[in-house]
């Protein structure tokens, strides 16, 4: 190798290594330039970086997780109904990235729901169904066999079970986020959210509509619909996501018929619990007709997810 080719080789290696560091950091705005790395990097424009930082803005759109959705259903006093869950037998029919992502969310919600109601055998089955979806998406070690073994060993300890469920869900969405698959991550979150929403609507006692706490929880989802649309909008251009945005917009159209008036929140520190209480009141207006419309719309969306 002559001198010229050696210089070229090292130049290319250095350039690619530097590029690799930046790629690994998910975008120039957040480029983590370690001080010791500057020696092999190109000259950085300090002022330009500072200007970039001033303008930089990272936005997180946080949807209720499947664990939180299941907990909201239980805390509203709803009964458990296995017939509402997506049958495990459907798992083998999900072969596309879209179907597996949506149903990873769906099955994780069903798993959380089963966990909340201590349906021991069922939750292991749903953990396996979720694992099948995660494996299909190539999510490494999202749900390891040791998680399932630990689940079986602690089958009567609800705290450990919820801990395992939340950890496996975090493993999935962190893997997708950190490996440049935000569209798939968004679809997983959407699947879980829609499943929780669907189960809630099916469990409402229409004879006690005015006093059913679950109705309030369903109306609360109105606050999340824009967050959900913003989350999906980050992956606009992805065909599957574009179709999902249209479906969620149908739900938003119905939600626009529901009104929620909330008084200005006022924080008050509670010494007894050493926590802050955000005091405010809200007034909700939803008719049975609009509720039925919400139920129908979410059922159609959910069915399109589980029967692709």
């Amino acid at each position: 190798m002559n001198r010229h080719s050696k210089v070229s080789t090292f130049f290319v290696l250095g350039l690619l290594l530097t590029a690799g560091l930046f790629v690994g950091c998910k975008g120039g705005k957040k480029a983590p330039v370690e001080k010791e790395d500057t020696a092999i990097s190109f000259v950085l424009d300090h002022d330009a970086i500072m200007q970039d930082i001033e303008q930089a803005e990272k936005v997180f759109n946080a949807l209720p997780s499947p664990v939180e959705s299941a907990m909201l259903i239980k805390s509203a006093g709803a009964e458990y109904n296995e017939a509402l869950l997506n049958p495990i037998s459907n798992a083998s029919s999900y072969v596309t990235n879209r179907a597996m992502a949506l149903n990873l969310g769906v099955y994780t919600c069903d798993l959380s729901f089963s966990s909340m109601y201590e349906q021991t055998q069922l939750l292991i089955d749903y953990m396996n169904a979720a694992k099948k979806m995660a494996d299909g998406l190539g999510i490494l070690d999202a749900i390891a066999q040791e998680d399932i073994d630990r689940l079986e060993e602690n089958i009567n300890d609800s705290e450990v079970i919820m801990d395992i469920v939340s950890q496996t869900f975090m493993n999935s969405n962190s893997y997708l986020e950190e490996n440049g698959q935000p569209a798939t991550a968004a679809m997983v979150l959407l699947g879980g959210w829609i499943e929780g929403f669907y189960i809630s609507t099916q469990l409402v006692n229409m004879d006690n509509f005015a006093n059913d706490k679950l109705v309030g929880r369903i109306v609360d989802q109105k606050f999340s619909i824009d967050i959900l649309l913003n989350l999906l909008a980050d992956s606009r251009g992805n065909q599957a996501v574009d179709e999902l945005i249209d479906q969620v917009n149908e739900l938003k159209t119905v939600f626009d018929k529901v009104t929620v008036e909330t008084s200005a929140p006022r924080p008050v520190y509670d010494e007894a619990t050493q926590s802050t209480v955000i005091k405010s009141e809200s007034k909700v207006n939803i008719t049975k007709e609009v509720f039925n419309e919400l139920t129908t719309t979410v059922s159609l969306i959910r069915n399109s997810f589980i029967n692709p």
Binding site: C25, K29, M50, L63, D163, S166, Q167, T168, F169, N173
Partner: peptide
């Protein structure tokens, strides 16, 4: 109980 959601990013001073 952790809700299972993941929100993390590399941020720079002042960001």
């Amino acid at each position: 109980t952790h809700d299972g959601n993941y929100h993390a990013a590399v941020l720079v001073e002042g960001e």
